[in-house]
Write a protein that binds this DNA or RNA. Structure first.
Lengths: 121, 121
DNA sequence: GACCTCTACGACGGATTGTCGTAGACATCG
DNA sequence: CGATGTCTACGACAATCCGTCGTAGAGGTC
C-alpha cells in the first residue's frame, strides 16, 4: 500500500476550510480511494491530540478544526521562535526577510497592524 | 533506558553555539551519562542529513553546524509560512497575538526592527 | 431478522530516533 | 612485540509516530 504523505495535514486542510465534517465527507474530499476506517482513525487521533473538536449528531461524529489554520500555523511559528529564546532578534529578522520575499507588501501591513494594536491594547 | 527527548536537538544546540566539536566534547556538554557511541551515532546521522559538517583531525571527526541557528530556524519558519501562502494577513494577526502573549515587549522590538529596516531597504 | 452505517479498538508495517554493543583500524606505552 | 586506549563503522533493539486497514459490536431502518 503506497503511503500518501502527510495525510493528517491534508485532513486538517479540509477542516480548516471551515464547517463541520463527517468522516464520510472528509473521505470524499481528501481521497475516496482510501478506506473509510483510515479517515476514522486519522480523525480520532487528531481528536486525541486536541487538534480537532467533535460533536455527535445522529449517532455519528461531526469534526471541526479546534483552531483556525492561522492560529495553528502561528503557534508553530511561535514554537520555533521559542527555541531562539535569549536571542530572538536575529530570528525575527530572518522571519521578516522570509515574509518580505513571500509578499513585499506584508511588511507594510505588519507595520499598520502594529500601529493599530498599540492604539487599542 | 529512559529516552531523553530531543537528543538531536540538544546536540544541535551545542553545535550552534559555535566552533568545532569532537564526539567526546559533545558528550561532555550534552549528557555525560549517555554512552560515547550514542553521540557518535547521533552526530553521524546528523551528518547524513546534512545538518552538520565534519572534518577529520588526527584520525577523529570534528563536527560543526552547517548552518547557523538562525538560518536553520528561519528555514523552518519559512516552511510554515509556505503553507499559508495566499492569505498571510490573518497569520500575521495570529502571530502578533501569540507573540504579545508570550512577551509583551517583543512587539516593541518588532516595531523597532521594522523602522530600522525601512531606513535601509 | 437482514441490511446498513457508524464507532472503538487493535494490528501491521515503514520511518524516525534514542540507545547501545561489537568489530576493527590506529596509535601509544611498556 | 603485545597490552591498552581511542576512534569509526555498522548493526541492532525498542519506542514512537503515522498511514493503512480489518473486525467486532452498537444502533438504526425496512
Amino acid at each position: 500500500m503506497a503511503r500518501s504523505p502527510k495525510l493528517e495535514r491534508r485532513v486538517l486542510d479540509a477542516l480548516w476550510g471551515g464547517g463541520e465534517w463527517s468522516v464520510r465527507q472528509i473521505r470524499e474530499e481528501v481521497d475516496p480511494a482510501l478506506a473509510y476506517t483510515t479517515f476514522a482513525t486519522v480523525l480520532d487521533r487528531l481528536h486525541d491530540k486536541g487538534e480537532v473538536d467533535r460533536a455527535k449528531v445522529d449517532g455519528a461524529w461531526r469534526y471541526s478544526a479546534s483552531r483556525s489554520r492561522e492560529e495553528a500555523l502561528a503557534a508553530e511559528v511561535g514554537r520555533v521562535l521559542q527555541r531562539a529564546a535569549g536571542a530572538p532578534e536575529p530570528l525575527l529578522v530572518a522571519f521578516l526577510d522570509q515574509m518580505e520575499r513571500a509578499d513585499p507588501e506584508a511588511l507594510l501591513r505588519l507595520e499598520k497592524l502594529l500601529k493599530a494594536r498599540r492604539g487599542t491594547p
